[in-house]
Amino acid sequence: MTLVPFITQMNPDASTIAAGAPIEVDLAPIAEGQDIKVFWRGKPIFVSHRTKKQIDEARKVSVASLPDPQSDEARVKPGHDQWLVVIGICTHLGCIPIAHEGQYDGFFCPCHGSVYDTSGRIRSGPAPTNLPVPPYQFVSDTKIQIG
């Protein structure tokens, strides 16, 4: 029990936690086919306004064939299919993938060559899992709250 203060002091302190509070992102200025990168808790969050083509591509593949099976519907909010929000940190060793690159027009990690599709799902390369979806909800049709 005496060890507790000596170990928990290493966890994020009050100001770090406070700075990690939810943030709001205005989606209105993001044109179709565009994406932006915002930082939340020091992590880059990709917000992509996907085109019809990109959504179709993400939904066409058979889910069972994926390394980390997950449907595109499960990775976006219902009724907001065009918006993909993912944490832009490669699940392999934490590098930042580049948006709109790689053979699936999704994300490509320059470090060890992991390729993600337009839904942020791992398709090839050493990364074990899909890009995680951060907790977020739609405050209005053009605004999300991350966190």
Binding site: I7, M10, N11, P12, D13, T16, G20, R41, G42, K43
Partner: peptide, 9 residues
């Protein structure tokens, strides 16, 4: 998280 003392390095 404990090593970082935050949510990233």
């Amino acid at each position: 998280t404990l090593l970082w003392g935050g949510y990233s390095v």
